[in-house]
Design a protein around this nucleic acid. Sequence first.
DNA 1: CAAATAGTGTCTGTTAGACACTATATG
DNA 2: CATATAGTGTCTAACAGACACTATTTG
Lengths: 246, 246
Amino acid sequence: MTNDEQDYLEHYDKQAYDAPIVTVDPVLFTYHEEQLKVLLVQRSRPPDQQMWGLPGGFVDLKNDATLEDTALRKLREKTGVVPPYLEQLQTFGNAWRDKRSWSVTVCYTALIAHQECAAHIATVADVRWVTLPELASLPLAFDHGTIIQQARERLRQKALYSIVPAYALPEKFTLPELQQLHEVLLEMPLQKKSFRRRIEQAELLEDTGEKRAESSGRPATLYRMKAESGAYTFLRNLSGAGDAEA
Amino acid sequence: MTNDEQDYLEHYDKQAYDAPIVTVDPVLFTYHEEQLKVLLVQRSRPPDQQMWGLPGGFVDLKNDATLEDTALRKLREKTGVVPPYLEQLQTFGNAWRDKRSWSVTVCYTALIAHQECAAHIATVADVRWVTLPELASLPLAFDHGTIIQQARERLRQKALYSIVPAYALPEKFTLPELQQLHEVLLEMPLQKKSFRRRIEQAELLEDTGEKRAESSGRPATLYRMKAESGAYTFLRNLSGAGDAEA
DNA sequence: CAAATAGTGTCTGTTAGACACTATATG
DNA sequence: CATATAGTGTCTAACAGACACTATTTG
């Protein structure tokens, strides 16, 4: 570092420039009772007090080293655990989304098994799982409705070419369960055979040797995801449209 | 708005919370002389003075209504024009990427035809197109090297299932040109027949009726992208790997 | 006509869709 | 045995890969 540069840094005053406020907002999904659900928090403070919003918050410059740290910290605060899947979704920033100021929020999509956080969530009144149809009738803070829709759409896309949605299931799950989840995400029925075949051929899952009985009918094999399976993308999509991504 | 809320807003002091600094960094690519090139600017001020970096900058709260506005403004400042393709890439934020402070940069991938900005760029000394191999030997500011690699990788992915790269070509272009560009992005040869067939079947291009002669050989038909072709994704990828997206 | 580049015909291979079939559980 | 759910066999359709072929230009 040059002397000039050192000098510059010593006298640099962040406050001299007007900066937007910066938050991180994770959209945490789970799958429970044949429905996709998203975690919402009732806001205890303004702005948008009493309305429901994403479990996000400000970056804590002292304790968060990265944006991802902020996302994980907020999720841990609200659910008591850290999710097995967290991926940056998109950043929303404009002059009007927050009444206080020009504001930027870095959003993440996260997935977790419902039972992983059931215990912790049961202890608090201001956090709950909301099904997607219910969203329409809840008062949502800021532009969180839009953000959730976008996260939902991205997850739908992923269901076409990956098994990422599996992170919304427990560690051990059956193929019919995973297929049902994909069917909910894609809003269409899938061919059992096609679905199984592509997953088997790509060797994405590991047979646990266990079975699960649904109390009637043949018991299904329990599988576990392999380590790298979340990153795998099929060369060919399921046929749920060829468009969009934004 | 309740009285309480109004009161809260009136007394809200943004400066009371320590916020990261926020910048926007577009990665502008073009295709020229059979090479992919990225636009870099030599920094005239600290930090990382004299080093080369992306043509980005701070959000101007008074004049930019959205993050995209900031990206477009910076690109216009450096190239004199606005690119036909701009898409958010990813946001990088952590405690160490900028010496001054905890810092967040919202990055965009942009594409433009080389000749669109050739005139403007020729007039300034501190802006230039850099080929990707050259990057290794240039002193790059901040983590801009990483950001460029990531933008490059995303563009590679898009070459597998879309014709988005076409935005790096002039308005009218030939199929052999587009194929060459995809080949550069994918770093592998493509089958002429397969490439043409999928584009024809999806009806993504419009015949201009014109031809372009390369001074020897049969002249190629000039095409123009249709309006929605950038959003189209093929159901089946070209076979450049089934993995990754980072 | 030779050389160069554009563009086509057509066969093969892979994989998703469809759907009937078999397998294994409960009562 | 009937019913329910899990899982398979196998044909078809769509489309990318391979590669030899034809077409149109310049000199």
